[in-house]
């Protein structure tokens, strides 16, 4: 079970969190002017790296904040965590 450091609460077990997927997805500023293809990319196309991945987690059974986590999808090692909009703090250890 992962140990995720919530920037607001500290390290917590994975089961307090819900996964939110790719954190790099940006909602088009003006959806009406987005092409079908651009809109499709926003809805359906995600970063899916084999390695470090920027992702969102929701501290659902905690502070209810969405947070950003950089996690290696191959080793499950957590490299950095932080708020959704803000600097990530590097993690040591796990």
């Amino acid at each position: 079970m992962l140990l995720i450091r919530c920037p607001h609460c500290g390290p917590r077990n994975q089961d307090e969190f819900a996964y939110g997927g790719d954190a790099t997805v940006k909602r088009p500023a003006d959806p009406a002017s987005a092409s079908d293809s651009e809109w499709h990319a926003y809805i359906y196309v995600r970063d899916n790296p084999r390695g470090p991945h920027e992702e969102l987690w929701h501290h659902a059974a905690g502070c209810r904040r969405w947070i950003r986590v950089r996690r290696d999808t191959l080793s499950h090692r957590i490299l950095a965590t932080g708020p959704v909009h803000g600097p990530l703090a590097e993690e040591e250890g796990r």
């Binding site: 079970m1 994975q14 089961d15 819900a18 084999r50 999808t73 191959l74 080793s75 499950h76």
Partner: peptide, 13 residues
Amino acid sequence: DFCNSYAQRGNFP
């Protein structure tokens, strides 16, 4: 396991 992974190893929950 509900999060992206290439690890071929999962977790306990």
